[in-house]
Design a protein around this nucleic acid. Structure first.
Lengths: 345, 345
DNA sequence: GTTTCGATTCAAACCGGTTTAGTAAATCCG
DNA sequence: CGGATTTACTAAACCGGTTTGAATCGAAAC
């Protein structure tokens, strides 16, 4: 084991012939150190290969130099969702530049609160991300109580003192509905995510509003759980109502839905049009290639972490706008079959 | 902001009428504290709601109480791979019980070494996981140089002083090949992962050996990159060689391959059998449902983190056996078409 | 020639734990 | 009963940084 005992600030001080305090000042670019002492200290530090000990800095300035992410989803759902890795990659992009670390916590849903408390209580992180917002999310009050800075992805429905990255799924859903309406569909269904999730209920509302705006009758909405199994079951249910198009709230369910259609002998897109959400890697490689809504979780991760770090540093932070999601049209959408009945169901 | 300034060990000491040292002893269950003082200290700590400061403990015992995971894959690939979330969930399962945290680092492949150095240099973690082993993986020497304990997923090909979770993909691949052989296939192809990855090359070798063992001629092997796009391209290439079955090294490529088959008018499983690897959530919900190899990354995560924590605590740790992967047979595999030529290609 | 001032620098305190050395009282033992 | 242990506890040092208050110095001001 190469345990050459990392040099401390004391070693640097000795090497440069100054006191610890001066070294600290010099290395942090504070005024009050003459130019040549600073120079001498810097080269000494470099020669010794000195790196500041995060542990020691953390204790003395009572900061952790880390931010936290608590994931309360089931591992299977996490695995199927391309959101997290991309988001985390974006987060890292910002964090590593600023010398911060990401502390991840994956917990069963029942232990979510405990997860945040643990993170805060042991002082492991200086702030957290708030993902998968729920309707009237109890975590907002919790984090305010804990005094833990946070940045949420999407603006919560209730009051929140925390800045948000203004992710808005509604234009994406609206674009999908508009696209289908323009193709001539009049009977469109929506397979929604769980209603207690803000994105679940918001996408649903966006769907309903977009239908109304297009002058179409309300369509059936089935709530599913974002999983392939859930999507398949919901698809069966919805196909019985005789719709000609389905707007799914994620790609995974849409892809499962494609299979159900094949199984039931419903041709896509000739008899049924289908749109997904997320624009997964796989979307372009299923049969038929899936029309989907492209989002940019990598960007959200970057923006969210920039905002969070600024917030932690005590700067005032406004909500962060991000570009609207884009509809990516592929072969799973087409005009409805000609003979289809046009009266409302 | 509820900043009631968390109580320190000093406050507990004062409340219990003893010295800091005694409190520390009492709370760590060390001998040398009488039963009723211990009692008194414990209730005092409880009443004050005291939690030890990780920062302070970290500094004084020079441990971070955290382990690291460096992910050097592209975010898109990460997003498509259900391995990571499941693995991480398993890791967390162990860590949270033992009061440890997981520090994640997602870096471009070119900065992988820097990632480990950063983690070690700033003393952020006490050990790391070694995933996605490569052939002659340079990280092993690097970590030994850095003196950072590690546990690898799968045993490296070269020498390594680190314990490994003995994940072995070979039985899974072998089972797939055997299954296809038993169905009567004689011309089987393999779409492999990148050869510089140990799992990529091992699955490939397992494929070749299993063919030989079944008395079958060598089949075409195409190296792809685990992505849907790569899988689709490789499938086109391989279908031109007239095989009746394809063993894919992951589900994502297999699912993309299914679409290519549809597109080329090749019926699955009537004319072409297909097997995946990973047994993704989606595998059961594509058309036809995908025969795949079920692995258990959640378990690996649990085992790996147990081993890593033991290693960090200075216990000697042996390689950890895990159950072999199981073949899950679904509808994407069937006997080859009757008229197929049986001579070697 | 003092006085004053700003620029440098240092010594010491501090963050909140753990750990060691040392002390006083209780217990053991012959 | 007196010395040797043992037990229960305290005070202080330590981990490696940051930060404060005071000391030192040369130069400008009076």
């Amino acid at each position: 084991m190469t345990r050459a005992d990392r040099p401390t600030i004391r070693d640097v001080a000795r090497a440069a012939g100054v006191s610890k305090g001066t070294v600290s000042f010099a290395l942090n670019g504070r005024p009050g150190v003459s130019e040549d002492t600073r120079e001498r200290i810097l080269t000494a530090a470099l020669e010794l290969g000195w790196t500041p000990s995060t542990k020691a800095r953390a204790l003395s300035v009572s900061r952790s130099f880390a931010v936290g992410l608590v994931l309360a989803r089931e591992p299977e759902l996490l695995g199927a969702d391309p959101f997290f890795p991309a988001f985390i990659a974006g987060v890292e992009r910002t964090l590593s530049d600023r010398g911060q670390a990401l502390v991840l916590q994956v917990v069963p849903e029942s232990e979510e609160e405990a997860g945040y408390r643990r993170l805060a209580g042991t002082g492991r992180v200086d702030g957290v991300f708030l993902l998968d917002l729920r309707v009237d999310d109890p975590r907002i009050a919790l984090l305010e109580e804990l005094g833990l800075p946070a940045v949420s992805i999407a603006r919560p429905d209730g009051p929140s003192e925390f800045p948000a990255v203004l992710v808005d799924d509604r234009p994406g859903i609206a674009a999908a509905v508009r696209h289908l309406a323009e193709l001539g569909h009049r009977h469109i269904a929506h397979i929604a995510g769980p209603a207690h999730f803000l994105h679940g209920s918001r996408r649903r509302r966006a769907f309903e509003e977009a239908l109304a705006e297009a002058g179409l009758p309300a369509g059936p909405v089935v709530e599913a759980d974002f999983s392939a199994a859930g999507g398949a079951a919901a698809t069966r249910e919805v196909l019985a109502t005789g719709v000609t198009a389905i707007v799914y709230s994620n790609d995974l369910m849409a892809i499962a839905g494609l299979s159900v259609a094949v199984e039931l002998g419903v041709a896509v897109p000739a008899e049924l049009s289908v749109t997904g959400f997320d624009n997964t890697d796989l979307a372009a490689y299923v049969t038929p290639p899936l029309t989907s809504v492209r989002t940019d979780p990598y960007l959200w991760g970057r923006k969210a972490s920039e905002a969070l770090l600024d917030l932690i540093d005590g700067r005032t932070v406004d909500d962060v706008p991000v570009p609207a999601a884009q509809l990516v049209i592929r072969a799973s959408t087409a005009p409805p079959p000609p003979g289809v009945r046009t009266e409302t169901p």
